[in-house]
Design a protein around this nucleic acid. Structure first.
Lengths: 347, 347
DNA sequence: GTGAAAGCGCTAACAA
DNA sequence: TTGTTAGCGCTTTCAC
């Protein structure tokens, strides 16, 4: 109802001055500013973001594109982005692909490309060439968090190194029978993350001259239940049992722990488990993990975008985000094996 | 770059006709419509939501206000809202209070009340009178999902009944020593949900003439770790141990299960556990629960809002959302107690 | 079925 | 420091 105009009338000033005062521009006298703000308050003035957006070409909103919402990592990054945007007075528009590849095109056209947002944070998605072209054409800042893809700058940990570090930890403990619960490329999700963590796994085994067994690399889809099923699968396979498991995410590791407990096995006595992420529940559950800080990654990515929107600098590539190994009680040395077993029997 | 104007020029039509054609209004000949759409495509036309918003007063965006993001229930509701909005071509603006009560005022003023959105879905928050007044003044549709508050219509399960049902299940199994892990009013969160579930708990005990023990009602803050700590606390208390626990959310129940396992106790042998929500992980973990469908609640709430925005109907109050009891292996009859114990000893 | 013209509420030169 | 004057890109009467 009340627009800038009414305030102008009420204060006897011009629209422009009111506009400036409302935005706190320095070119307005303090007296005027105060008077304007008081009247605005009194009249219950509410600015129209559409009008401002139309006039400036800026929406003061940032889009966040997520593959799915229901995942610890995404939620944490989202929290970081949100905190940063809120502090800067920007709004957050959430674009969820919802796992379905189908809607992807529509999201791209209908929403993102409608000048609704000034910039875009993308979580763990790879773009096809067409999409990249469109993004480029839009000319607004884009940044990917978590998993590199071709043609777009990205921020996140080095997943290969993370996988390597996790596996090395198990090897250093003395394990040689190590399985991997990873993920495969799900519709629209970035294939890079699971792939690189697996590569790190394989590289670490190779470096220790341990042969990777194909049947010990299973898919857990990056979710709790998937980790559970994958672990069950590993345990039900004929032949020797792995003494350690590297799960590519903590959520899958939690599932694996549940499966192991359900089979009556002990951790780390029978099987050691290590995850990746640093999920807060890992503390209670005693999960050893490669910890990263997705919240901070969200914050950092947003900072970069905001800086660019304000014309201060532009960064094309970033240092990999840090990670570290958190040793807890889910990993330990493998139980002395067959030799002792036989000894026992001999006695 | 390309606006409606260029298309008008390119097709030799007027801006108005192009506008109509682009929106698929019936008052335009099919030929024209097709021609316009083709040219728009060719020119890479991207509509400006600000301009449309300014002209119509509609933003085609819905705000979603959440207390925190990092909670299963909120995420599921969010998914439901998102799916529905996407289908309707609306955008979703996420307002996260991030647990902090402090930012609340800013969120209210700076963002929500900026005509950025056409309507508002609020998750589990109660408003103070001032906020309610503002919302009313805005005159746009608002609906609360999950937990009733004064002055705003709401959609969700009857939490009191849910608490009653959960507790009754334990009582029917034969339990009389029943504890409750609930939550307290956290900054800005709706006090109603934890309170009502607890009331249901107490009512069920009363109905069975079981005395509620104050020391068996503990706070788990509605998170995994809180449930874990609360359970530890219950187990470390002097005196008799409860034989069953009603956790006000599945996430807390999972924490309780972890604590019980860590203490070397068995479920349901030593302690039965029931939760509320229907979290998917409960299936794997065998958690008995009062299942509800937050996704659907999100969908329904959004439907109501969209219907109102399109001028079809207005609903002031809703049937409570459904819930049901899912029996799994975390609940069972209590172990025959002291009497047998003594008998054993006598023999 | 199409066009002309008048805004929607704000910002941003340019003057004063 | 303030006011004047044009728009920003679209929608929407009202004519034709």
């Amino acid at each position: 109802m009340t627009g800038i105009q009414e305030i102008a009338r009420a204060t006897g000033l011009s629209k422009s001055t009111v506009s400036r005062a409302l935005r706190g521009l320095p070119s307005v006298s303090e007296t005027t500013t105060r008077s304007v703000q008081r009247t605005a308050e009194r009249l219950g003035y509410i600015p129209s973001s559409s009008a401002a957006g139309l006039a400036t070409g800026r929406t003061r909103a940032i889009g966040v594109l997520v593959p799915v919402i229901d995942r610890w990592f995404y939620v944490k990054v989202l929290e970081g982005i949100d905190a940063q945007l809120r502090a800067a007075g920007y709004d957050l528009i959430l674009y969820n692909l919802g796992g379905r590849g189908g809607d992807r095109e529509r999201v791209f056209h209908r929403s993102i490309l409608r000048k609704r947002v000034d910039a875009l944070v993308v979580l763990c998605l790879v773009f096809d060439p067409g999409e990249r072209e469109q993004l480029q054409a839009m000319e607004y800042p884009v940044i990917v968090v978590g998993g590199p893809g071709p043609g777009v700058r990205h921020m996140g940990i080095d997943d290969r190194k993370a996988g390597f570090a996790a596996t090395s930890h198990l090897i250093e403990l003395g394990h040689t029978a190590i399985a991997h619960i990873g993920g495969e490329d799900e519709s629209g999700l970035n294939a890079a993350v699971p792939l690189e963590r697996r590569e790190g796994f394989i590289a670490a085994l190779a470096a220790a001259r341990i042969e990777a067994r194909d049947e010990w690399i299973v898919n857990g889809g990056f979710v709790f239940e998937g980790g559970y099923r994958a672990m069950k699968e590993l345990l039900s396979k004929p032949g020797p049992r792995p003494t350690a498991v590297f799960a590519a995410s903590d959520e899958m590791a939690f599932g694996a722990l549940a499966a192991i407990a359900q089979e009556g096995l002990s951790v780390p006595g029978d099987i050691s488990v290590i995850g990746v992420d640093g999920h807060q529940n890992g503390e209670v559950l005693g999960l050893t993990t490669i910890r990263q800080n997705p919240y901070q990654q969200g914050v950092d990515a947003t900072r970069v975008l905001l800086a660019e929107l304000e014309g201060r600098g532009h960064t094309e590539s970033f240092e990999p985000a840090p990670f570290d190994l958190v040793r807890r009680r889910s990993t330990g040395a493998p139980r002395p094996l067959d030799p002792e077993d036989s000894l026992d029997r001999v006695r």
